[in-house]
Amino acid sequence: MLTLIVDILTWACFIVGGFFLFIGSLGMVRLVDFWARLHAASIIDSAGIGLILVGMMLQGGFTLITAKLALIVLFLFITGPTASHAVANAAFMSGSRPHDLVEDVTSEGDKPNAKDDTKSDSKTKESTGSKTS
């Protein structure tokens, strides 16, 4: 009886986690922008991997295997968002900006890009003006 309940919970964790994994990997291919693909990668890193590892912990029982799986979950939950943040920060510092960012408020803190700010502002004004006209 108990094994049946544990098996059902494991199947639920695997199916939901596999769903998130599949949606995330599909989004990595289909989404248009680097900044949009960041969301898909974060879904795989947190939801998919967390749920599948919880399902494995349910199958492991109260053994050393579960302790090792808990360590993997702990390290992945620390390092995954840190790595995503590092990639996003490196892309931001390299000058990449989101696809449809009309008003570039995010680059006000960048002193070296002060000249580029005015240029991008004039560009966005031109584009909006052409849209309205």
Partner: peptide, 19 residues
């Protein structure tokens, strides 16, 4: 940066596959 992001996710999936 797309490649680095995909590589990081690929490595996380490898951890899952090994387990």
């Amino acid at each position: 940066y797309d490649r680095v992001l995909a590589l990081n996710t690929f490595g996380s999936c490898t951890v899952l596959l090994i387990g």
